[in-house]
Design a protein around this nucleic acid. Structure first.
Length: 833
RNA sequence: GCGGACGUGGCGGAAUCGGUAGACGCUGGGGACUUAAAAUCCUCUGCCAUCGGCGUGCGGGUUCGAGUCCCGCCGUCCGCACCA
């Protein structure tokens, strides 16, 4: 009697078996080839969402597949456990951030286990654990001693109500995202990691990452933003000088003004004695920074009255304070060439400054520029004395050479990338292990005093940093002189925590961050999988941290992740009531809102988010359909890099497939053995073995799923035979990486040895991949007219003869001889009439 | 504005080297089984149509042959953004 597959029972049973036998623990001393498969570890927010399920399912299929193909697989999981939500929870719910975090970890761990992921839980780590962040402090101090860490005054977004620094992303329309208070720019002493020292390496390293998406490499390249040009000085009429940077030194004779940023020292100095200048600077700061505002904002300037002497003797240029010059980029000052830079053009037009052509655009070479916009294309130099006639690139080189020879400037490379500010005025993070002594200055905490642990007895009743106002924690003796000193009360940006966790997974000794030899055996991560939202920050910081570790001699590794895959989001329909309120799927039924009976508008399919109320909680779905159906749905249909729309029909379909599999497995267990061979099914089976393997390796799970459907369709249609029985047995192994619970159940039922999780991937018989007959397309003038089934490898003449003998071809030729016949062996014949 | 990706049935998508477009799944139609329903099974499902024709965003081109290559448009999405 056929039974239904009881997913709930099977899930629980096999998850327990895997757990007890430590099936997925990676062995450090294994002689097998190694494979490190990693998904970005989650923030323990409370419960897992569909995005996690999709992410971890993909990694899991690859990890399980690699085990079956003979690899020793490291597939660990941990928790990115520091961060603001824990402190927000502490303020709102009066619960300690640590307690809140640990409860969330426990809940989410249970949910991940419920999905049957092949994870090595023995290596689990949480970044909020002193046994993790203590080692991070020691790495920070290694970097400090190597000169990769420094402290400087820097402007930050300060929320005066919450009394904390906000990241740029947390400032919305000039206000704090939580408090709604107007954000102030404040100067604070902050710690910085010298990522810019590695800018060139990080840029060059992108070239070696062939298994990264081009998109991510390009985003990092743009973020690093390398520009080469000339940095040089203008002597000013007050006896001082101003340094400018340009990527277009070739246009130096087209300069008609110099402009400095509002917070440039020259502007600040002027403001202190000129109230109008001060007012102008104030006005510059008020400008919005959104795309639309920048687009429409007028170029404004304030004439300082100073003039700058052109270094090549081409007169005196007026010096302006301008709202479009950024202090953060280059030197905070530019020289304006209106004919060949659009901003300079707009500025010069407004203030009636000369616009002189120095690069000919095609036929135009006169100095009087009458265009309506700047010309930035290629050309040769004109109206430029000794540069006349030279191509742009040549002219750049010659001007730089001359500046260097004459000593007024030098060739220079400027990056958009800034050093990484890591100080956060918050409690729930890694304490910065530095002590401030009035006599000795900055003193690193001695290694034997690490970890600098967070105090547990803190309160969140009032805004601000609890570490700052804790009665005793910050008061210490200076490790050098023994005098009274203060701990740094800032904590590290949580991106520091996620910059090396993948190394700690590979090796976790108690007394140091990691064992070099062991870490080098596992790393780099061969396949890293996560969301594209981390394309820049996390992935750039982790690359930097790895290079910094190499710089201080802790590991011989340049790139942490050789393979990267960015998966798409999980989306869902949105629903709105007539008054614009978002409605959750469970609030509607039959096209109306259940509570009011009012009609519902179906909105766009969007990323699942709480604000749009279109989330679907995985937990009840897993309980209803079982882990395998959920996993199967996550892999079906949509290519993994694209968005996947959650749908009720989709999960139903996946569940039906699991039941179909079970009917095949169960019938084989019950029925009589089939006899005889089925050559066509044998061929299909072996094509599927090879095809699914290739698709999984390429992370093309949707294609692997389609091939498995085809095989199942073929098996179901096939008459009983020994081949059919063998195909069903092999199918168990083929689906095992994707739907492991039903696969274990079937493996046990059909008398398999041990666990299917430990079974090898089926062997492909190469001879069976080759078809002995082929279907050849018959075209006339490129249009398909018929197909012929012919023996594979038939000679060209015979194929051509068969095509010309075809009656449809004969009819279309109407007795004429073909002008030409194209034969593609085993594929097609095209008769050109 | 700069940079990038993408555009294939009612929907998600497949077509790996320029060689039979639409595999596979979903939705929908018809039928079988059932007292009935669910489940399951069979079958059809790009468009127009009688032969046949038309079809991969639009317009050109290369080719015996173009979803795939080239040129020019249109649209959607993503990243960055006054970067000198």
């Amino acid at each position: 009697m056929a039974s239904r597959f009881n997913a709930l029972k099977a899930d629980t049973h096999w998850q327990q078996v895997w757990d007890e036998s430590q099936t997925f623990a990676a062995r450090d001393d294994s002689p097998k080839p190694r494979s490190y498969v990693l998904e970005m570890f989650p923030y323990p927010s409370g419960k897992i969402h569909m995005g996690h399920v999709r992410n971890y399912t993909m990694g899991d299929v690859l990890a399980r597949f690699r085990r079956m193909t003979g690899h020793e697989v490291l597939h660990p999981m941990g928790w990115d456990a520091f961060g603001m939500p824990a402190e927000n929870a502490a303020m709102e719910k009066k619960v300690h951030p640590g307690e809140w975090t640990r409860q969330n970890i426990a809940a989410m761990k249970a949910q991940l286990k419920r999905l049957g992921f092949a994870l090595d839980w023995s290596r689990e780590l949480a970044t909020c654990d002193p046994s993790y962040y203590g080692h991070e402090q020691s790495l920070f101090l290694d970097f400090y001693r190597a000169g990769l860490v420094y402290r400087k005054e820097s402007a930050v977004n300060w929320d005066p109500v919450d009394m904390t620094v906000l990241a740029n992303e947390q400032v919305i329309d000039g206000r704090g995202w939580r408090s709604g208070a107007l954000v102030e720019k404040r100067k604070l002493s902050q710690w910085f990691l010298r990522i810019t020292r590695f800018a060139d390496e990080l840029l060059a390293g992108l070239g070696s990452l062939e298994h990264w998406p081009d998109k991510v490499r390009l985003m990092q390249e743009n973020w690093i933003g390398k520009s080469q040009g000339l940095q040089f000085r203008f002597a000013l009429s007050d006896g001082e000088s101003v340094e400018v940077f340009t990527t277009r030194p070739d246009t130096i004779f087209g300069a008609s003004f110099v402009a400095v940023a509002a917070d440039h020292p020259i502007a600040q100095a002027l403001a202190s004695r000129d109230p109008a200048a001060a007012a102008f600077i104030e006005r510059c700061k008020q400008g919005g920074t959104t795309a639309a505002e920048l687009e429409t904002q007028e170029k404004l300037g304030y004439d300082t009255g100073l003039t700058a002497a052109h270094p090549l003797g081409a007169g005196e240029l007026p010096v302006y304070i301008a709202n479009f010059v950024l202090m953060e980029y280059g030197t905070g000052a530019v020289f304006g060439v209106p004919a060949h830079d659009q901003r300079d053009f707009e500025f010069a037009s407004k203030y009636a400054l000369p616009i002189r052509r120095v690069v000919a655009d095609g036929e135009r070479s006169d100095a009087a520029f009458d265009g309506t916009e700047a010309y930035t294309g290629p050309g040769h130099l004109v109206n430029s004395h000794f540069l006349d006639g030279l191509a742009v690139e040549e002219a750049k080189r010659i001007v730089i050479e001359r500046a260097e020879r004459e000593g007024w400037g030098q060739g220079s490379t400027v990056y958009r990338l800034r050093d990484w500010g890591v100080s956060r005025q918050r409690y729930w993070g890694t304490p910065i292990p530095i002590i401030h002594c009035s006599a000795c200055g900055e003193v690193p905490v001695p290694r034997e005093q690490l970890p600098v642990a967070l105090p547990e007895d803190v309160s969140f009743d009032v805004p601000g940093n609890p570490l700052e106002r804790h009665p005793s924690w910050k008061h210490v003796h200076c490790p050098q002189c023994g005098g009274a000193a203060l701990r740094d009360t800032d904590t590290l940006d949580t991106f520091a925590d996620s910059s090396w966790y993948f190394i700690r997974f590979a090796s976790q000794p108690e007394d140091r961050p990691f064992d070099r030899a062991q870490a080098e055996r596992w790393l780099p991560v061969g396949q890293y999988i996560g969301g594209v939202e981390h394309a820049i920050l996390h992935l750039l910081y982790a690359r930097f941290w790895t290079r910094a570790l190499r710089h201080v001699g802790l590991i011989d590794l340049a790139e942490p992740f050789t393979g990267l895959f960015t998966q798409g989001m999980v989306t869902h329909e949105t629903y709105k009531a007539a008054d614009g309120r978002w409605l959750a799927p469970e609030e509607i039924g039959g096209g109306v809102e259940l509570a009011t009976g009012a009609p519902v508008m179906v909105g766009r399919v969007e990323k699942m988010s709480k604000s749009k109320k279109n989330t679907v909680d995985p937990a009840p779905i897993v309980d209803q359909y079982g882990a395998d159906a959920v996993r199967w749905f996550m892999l079906s249909d949509s290519p993994p890099e694209r968005d996947l729309e959650w749908s009720e029909n989709g999960i139903e379909g996946a569940w039906r497939f699991v039941q179909r599999l079970w009917r095949l497995f169960d019938a084989l267990g019950e029925g009589e053995a089939g006899k005889g061979a089925d050559a066509a099914l044998d061929r299909k089976l072996h094509q599927t073995i090879a095809g699914v393997a290739a698709d999984v390796e390429a992370l093309s799970f949707n294609k692997a799923v389609a091939k498995l459907y085809e095989l199942v369709n073929a098996i179901e249609k096939a008459a009983p035979s020994a081949s059919r029985d063998a195909a069903v047995r092999t199918l168990v192994q083929l689906v095992a990486p994707m739907v492991p619970h039903i696969a274990e159940e079937a493996w046990a039922l059909l008398g398999g040895q041990g666990l299917v999780a430990d079974a090898p991937w089926p062997k492909v018989e190469a001879a069976l991949l080759v078809e002995d007959e082929v279907i050849v397309a018959i075209q006339v003038n490129g249009k398909l007219r018929d197909t012929l089934t012919l023996p594979k490898g038939l000679a060209r003449e015979d194929v051509e003869a068969a095509a010309l003998a075809n009656d449809k071809v004969a009819r279309l030729l109407e007795g004429r001889a073909p002008r030409k016949v194209i034969v593609v062996p085993d594929r097609l014949v095209n008769v050109v009439a």
